[in-house]
Design a protein around this nucleic acid. Structure first.
Length: 268
DNA sequence: ACACTGACCTGCGAGC
DNA sequence: TGCTCGCAGGTCAGTG
């Protein structure tokens, strides 16, 4: 389940591996992965080079010569670089033949991921209604106070709302709440000034550490290109049984349709 | 305007 | 052993 740190890791790994490579051919085996016409997708991408690599929220932005190739991994999407002779399986949905003989393969067991082609000048600041990146100056305590005016939703739901802040998913939302000592179900209207300041600081601290660790590996998830995240060793509450700080039992509650883990002793 | 729910998918593990 | 069922979760459309 790639969140911001995993997507960042994938973008940087792809940049290292395929920057400057040309797409010679595209095979779309599962059209539903695309949000555009498969033939148009193929024809547009053939002959294009991978130029620059960026991330916005959980979206991968691959700037080609004259088109922006957008990819969202959703839950289980992964990219692999493989030789053409390596066997395909039924979960590989899109194959890009590169000019160095390798193939960039998109694999996604649940077919949740999506790809699209957009104009080069697409405004990625406002795109898909995404809120600020956690590391932008505009994500600050005052912004949170303003955003929360008239809202009562749980802090956990707020963190998962991509219009509030871009890139946080279920795992990191739990971890951020724990780091702030806030129960995930607490109304965002009941955050103090100190809570809002902590939310900014802890969000950045946790995401920075996770990026440094190469993202999270949880359940069967391994990030693309053979890179295995190591952040799961650092999870304090998500899918944990016992609190690493106080030793109390970690509880799980359903919040906003998501499983949410918290320590009833450390979080209020 | 905000908040909540279900659909989209498939694999896996629990329970019968 | 083999079946069913619930769960995992990011996003978005639909509903209240």
């Amino acid at each position: 389940m790639p969140e911001l740190p995993e997507v960042e890791t994938v973008v940087r790994t792809l940049e290292h591996q395929i920057q400057g490579r040309e797409i010679e051919d595209v095979a779309v085996r599962t059209p539903m992965i695309l949000e555009c016409d498969p033939d148009q997708f193929r024809i547009t991408l053939i002959g294009q080079h991978f130029r620059t690599f960026e991330r916005r929220g959980k979206y991968l932005l691959l700037y080609m010569d004259s088109v922006l190739f957008l990819s969202h991994l959703r839950m289980e999407g992964k990219y692999y670089l493989q030789a053409p002779e390596e066997p395909l399986d039924r979960h590989i949905h899109v194959i890009f033949q590169l000019d160095d003989g390798r193939q960039l393969r998109y694999r996604d067991t649940r077919k949740f991921g999506r790809m699209n082609l957009l104009p080069m000048d697409t405004d990625i600041l406002t795109f898909h209604g995404l809120g600020p990146e956690p590391f932008w100056d505009s994500f600050n305590a005052d912004y949170i106070r303003e955003y929360c005016k008239g809202r009562k939703e749980p802090v956990k739901s707020l963190l998962l709302d991509q219009r509030f802040v871009a890139g946080i998913g279920n795992i990191y939302a739990d971890e951020i709440c724990f780091a702030c000592g806030i129960r995930p179900g607490r109304s965002c209207a009941r955050m103090t000034k100190k809570d809002r300041e902590n939310l900014v600081t802890e969000t950045r601290r946790i995401l920075t550490r996770a990026i440094a660790a190469g993202g999270t590996t949880i359940r069967s998830y391994t990030s693309s290109l053979g890179v295995t995240g190591r952040f799961q060793l650092e999870c304090m509450v998500h899918e944990q049984k016992v609190c690493k700080v106080c030793g109390n039992e970690i509880r799980m509650k359903w919040i906003g349709g998501r499983s949410s883990y918290y320590c009833p002793h450390c979080q209020h």
